[in-house]
Nucleic acid binder design. Structure first.
Lengths: 187, 187
DNA sequence: CTATGAGTTGACCGATCGGTAAACCCAACG
DNA sequence: CGTTGGGTTTACCGATCGGTCAACTCATAG
């Protein structure tokens, strides 16, 4: 029961679920893709739902770490960092493997508000909002919490349209809108 | 082979897919819920995918008609109509049956860009964008196409956050952001 | 050497998946 | 009356679903 095997399993499941969807990928396919038997998987996770929740935890950590790192690398002042969010998004959208947001997809397939998977998706967005709030507060915006929610709004909209229409345009449109909102907040 | 039977079937399928997701609802469950046998359904639709596409066509028509009607009822000038989009959305979000956008969900479950279901979802958003463009042009915005895309961005983000966080807040945040963008476009 | 115990395996469970075949019902027509 | 034919039903197809089980491997302990 090595912990590294478990991590490897979660990483593979993450990729498979991200590409194919949660209901669409079966445990058999997952086992075959990972190169481990199904029984071995069920030693690590008691149900498929537990495995999904583990992939969401990993993805949450991955994504927020990546975003913060990119934003810190691209900008120095809080105001610039708010805009850099959308430059980082543009990079993400243009990756060939980009297929929308894991959590939007999770909440699409598990819609019940008190379903653990739906709740995990909501929590991910809440943590992102917290990060945006630290930036708007640091920047000294007039209504920092309102601005942070609006930035999050633009980010989610950009993801949806990057997936359905044009990735680059979605990112640059969102960036332009954010710039107006940021300026309007006194920055 | 009455056409009304077919329509009734599509309407029932629409409700079932909207509540449960496309992969999660099987044809057996659909047949039982509609009160018709599976074979009868397969007389109208050769595959499940065809049925899904029919539900999306119905939903596209329903939603865009509803939105235009509500916007026309709520506002008279083009500028007011652009804002009224978000008042209409607020009404939608607060319905107890609200469970995000059918097309976001469809594109989440069928992610391949050249999959017919994904394409139908993209087309729905494109038609919405066209409607927004007529409004921004009529309002005399400085960059009407840019503004229309940003309004669409806010609308998609609002849907996602209404589903995951707070419906009323998502709508009002988007409305406030739209107001700033509209004013910034010289209106 | 044998005994043990964790970890792994292929085979299998009942249920359900999307989709089909053949029998059946019943009104219209001769 | 018998025949025909569209619309329906029940029963079924192989494949796959999430999940389980007895058997097997194999390093270690005595």
């Amino acid at each position: 029961m090595s912990a590294s095997k478990r991590d490897e399993l979660v990483q593979n499941a993450l990729k498979a679920f991200y590409r194919g969807g949660f209901h669409a990928i079966g445990m058999d396919a997952l086992a075959k893709e990972t190169g481990v038997s199904k029984t071995a998987m069920y030693k690590h996770f008691r149900t498929k739902e537990e495995l999904i929740l583990a992939t969401l935890r990993l993805r949450d950590e991955q994504f927020r770490n990546w975003l913060v790192r990119r934003v810190e690398a691209l900008a120095s002042t809080p105001r610039e960092k708010l805009l850099a969010i959308f430059d980082a998004l543009a990079e993400w959208f243009c990756e060939p493997e980009f297929r929308s947001c894991m959590f939007i997809k999770a909440s699409s397939e598990f819609q019940d508000r008190n379903h653990p998977i739906h709740a995990a998706s909501a929590e991910h967005k809440r943590l992102l909002l917290v990060y945006f709030q630290t930036l708007t507060h640091a920047a000294g915006a007039q209504n920092p919490d309102d601005l942070a929610r609006q930035i999050l709004l633009l980010k989610e909209g950009a993801i949806v349209l990057a997936h359905l229409h044009d990735p680059e345009m979605a990112a640059s449109d969102a960036r332009a809108a954010a710039q107006v909102l940021i300026t309007n907040a006194g920055l």
